[in-house]
């Protein structure tokens, strides 16, 4: 564990809590893509099946349980409790266009063909693109609530911090995982546009609106 990874994990945790609190406090999931949240739940479920097989540390296990529980809680809020506020008209990204390529890619490029390893690989690829339905929704409506933009920023910053962690681990432990690194870089690039607008607008107190 190093400071970059810890900060990354904290950003990840903050993102999830911000999203849950936003929905809970406003009693509404307007502007939130349920499809991205389905993909994230799938990411955590397929990556953290190792909870049953591999013990890394108490920190590791507790975080995994929190990510799993919070992702299903988010789905419950969107699709059950506050279903009436779910903006399904704007959440039209076809997730099979992400799921099918991720399945195929994880069968082609993987460290090893064990079920747990394949699920891990799939989860890494899927995580890289899981935010696309949400970004698509923001681009369709042309705006995001400030709190939603904070959520997106924290979620994007988490993987960016992990990249710094991978560079650090490469030099200090000679540890490198090509699959995670390449997917993590792609994941971070997908947020680049958003980061730019967040920094130039939201941090200066303006609303997050896409240029017309």
């Amino acid at each position: 564990m190093n400071i970059f990874r810890l900060l990354g994990d904290i950003c990840h945790l903050v993102a999830i809590i911000v999203l849950l609190l936003k929905i809970w406090k406003t009693r509404s999931c307007a502007g939130i893509s349920g499809k991205s949240q389905i993909l994230f739940a799938l990411v955590y479920t397929t990556r953290y099946v190792d909870l049953f097989f591999t013990y890394v540390s108490l920190y590791n296990s507790v975080m995994k349980v929190i990510f799993l529980a919070s992702s299903y809680a988010t789905l419950y809020l969107i699709y059950v409790k506050f279903k009436a506020t779910y903006d399904f008209n704007h959440d039209t990204f076809r997730i099979e266009f992400l799921l099918i390529p991720c399945v195929i890619l994880s069968l082609l490029i993987t460290h090893d063909y064990s079920p747990v390893e394949l699920l891990w690989t799939f989860s890494i690829y899927l995580e890289a693109v899981a935010i696309l339905p949400q970004l698509f929704m923001v681009s369709k409506t042309g705006e995001a609530e400030t709190i939603t933009s904070h959520y997106l920023f924290a979620l994007g910053a988490y993987r960016a911090l992990y990249i710094v962690n991978w560079i650090y681990r490469y030099y200090t432990e000679s540890f490198i995982d090509g699959i995670a690194v390449v997917a993590g870089i792609i994941q971070t690039i997908l947020y680049a546009d958003f980061f730019y607008l967040y920094i130039t607008k939201v941090l200066k107190g303006k609303d997050f609106k896409l240029p017309a």
Binding site: D9, D50, T54, V56, K64, F67, H111, N165
Partner: peptide, 10 residues
Amino acid sequence: ASNPSRHDEL
């Protein structure tokens, strides 16, 4: 090449 600590990240 799967050792148990390889996936020690979240």
